[in-house]
Amino acid sequence: MCLAIPSKIVEILDNNIAIVDTMGVRRKASLELLNPKPKVGDYVLLHVGFAIEVLSEEDALESLKLFEEALDYENEFEL
């Protein structure tokens, strides 16, 4: 399932399993697909119970900011 929301790693257990938190829901996720391994506090993207990428919060916010700026710019210049 293409879950859009990043999940936060709250604990790393044995066997490449981590506990991740998505908006208050905690569950196990496999870290087998990540190399280097993430650490507690990192945000990851999840797919069918596997972390598939590490994200940074700043990246997400930065991305939004750029988008907003782009829109402002275009509105100002009336295209």
């Binding site: 929301i5 208050g24 829901v25």
Partner: peptide
């Protein structure tokens, strides 16, 4: 809707 219920729904679609 509580935030975690929203999160739960997102996870399972």
């Amino acid at each position: 809707i509580e935030q975690s219920v929203r999160g739960f729904c997102e996870i399972l679609g």
